[in-house]
């Protein structure tokens, strides 16, 4: 028997749309100094956040973001039934250690930078399936923990090409409830892994753009919607180059989203902040969603949002072994 809540090839539609009753975002100093600084809940003074190591700082950032989101509804971590989250580090250490402190039943996810959409989708499906009434979906990334895992030691003097992106130090958390007031998640499209043979580890945008376009195209087809249905279609962290490529692919495939298409990686930083092609990391799309985007939805500036977080599913190991970089993108529909 086919699932009754599934529509088309890859899309799920929720019978009882899940309500985003509260959300929070914490970002690093560079992100806080960007164009959306005033829309985040908290800007860290430094990258350690009062901890001894960057990893501990990242973990604390996620933990505090979750607590802050719950606080906005006067709730304690114990009131949440499920915590679904992830980060970029091996064995999900930042998230696992945050979950240890929070002590909410926990499912850890790895979707590279697509984690925010993935955590929203998993929580939404579990809630619409009737298993839970109150869950927290979250994601985080930290510039220096990611640099040391994926690239070079931070004090190493290396020149980056213009295609490289700046992993954001940021966390975003959303409190989802089956009943409440706020924007709602009505549908989601689960992406396929798309690999167009890109191998340049200093250019994630080109690796992820085809996955983003594939998911967006599938979403419009599955939902049978015109491409001007959403007020804003926003991808996760394609950066300037990935976004430019995605726009070319939209034209080629005849699915150019209108009236507005943008990318969280392009939005997060100003040109003069040295982020080159733009922001990246799970925290990039998470903080833009849980900062300016949901704020604008609450104010009614955006009524229908298609949020597509994008991930490059590589590791330094796979790259050294000559593998190309597979991309993934998941789409979430958030409506007022």
């Amino acid at each position: 028997m086919p699932g009754t809540k599934k529509k088309g090839a890859q899309t799920v539609v929720f019978d009882n749309p899940l309500v985003l009753t509260a959300w929070a975002s914490i970002v690093g100093p560079l992100e806080g100094g960007g164009p959306w600084g005033q829309d985040f809940d908290w800007i860290m003074e430094d990258y350690l956040f009062g901890e001894q190591t960057w990893e501990k700082g990242e973990s604390k950032m996620l933990r505090e973001t979750v607590k802050h989101a719950l606080n906005k509804r006067n709730l304690e971590p114990a009131d949440a039934e499920l915590f679904v989250a992830g980060d970029l580090l091996n064995q999900l250490v930042s998230t696992n250690f945050a979950a240890r402190e929070l002590s909410i039943p926990f499912l850890g996810l790895y979707g590279a930078c697509s984690t925010m959409a993935e955590s929203l989708i998993v929580s939404s499906m579990l809630m619409d399936g009737g298993f839970f009434d109150r869950t927290v979906a979250a994601a985080c990334s930290h510039h220096y923990t990611a640099e040391r895992q994926f690239r070079f030691p931070t004090e190493q003097g290396v020149q980056k090409p213009p295609s490289s992106q700046w992993t954001a130090t940021a966390a975003g958390a959303v409190l989802l409830e089956s009943v409440g007031v706020g924007p709602r998640i009505t549908a989601a499209t689960i992406g396929r892994v798309v690999d167009m043979g890109q191998k340049d580890i200093a250019d994630m945008g080109s690796a992820m753009a085809p996955a983003a376009v594939d998911t967006i195209k599938t979403h419009f087809k599955d939902m049978n919607l015109p491409t001007d249905y959403y007020d804003l279609v926003v991808t996760g962290d394609l950066g300037k180059i990935g976004m430019a490529i995605a726009q070319q692919l939209f034209i080629k495939d005849g699915v150019s989203p209108r009236p507005n298409y943008s990318d969280c990686g392009v939005l997060l930083f100003d040109d003069n902040q040295g982020a080159l092609s733009g922001g990246s990391g799970c925290g990039c799309s998470a903080c833009i969603l849980c900062g300016p985007l949901l704020k604008k939805m609450l104010a009614g500036d955006i009524k229908k949002l298609l949020f597509i977080a994008t991930g490059a599913l590589m590791s330094p190991l796979s790259s050294f072994q000559g593998e190309s970089i597979p991309g993934i993108a998941h789409a979430v529909v958030i409506e007022n």
């Binding site: 070079f152 030691p153 931070t154 004090e155 190493q156 003097g157 290396v158 020149q159 980056k160």
Partner: peptide, 27 residues
């Protein structure tokens, strides 16, 4: 200071012996 120098100079600061020193101390 050296990583900031490296951002601008690229191979100019990697190739001399100071670059080798940078790689070891940074690690």
């Amino acid at each position: 200071v050296y990583n900031e120098l490296g951002k601008i100079a690229g191979a100019g600061s990697i190739v001399p012996i100071t670059g080798f020193s940078n790689a070891i101390v940074a690690s």
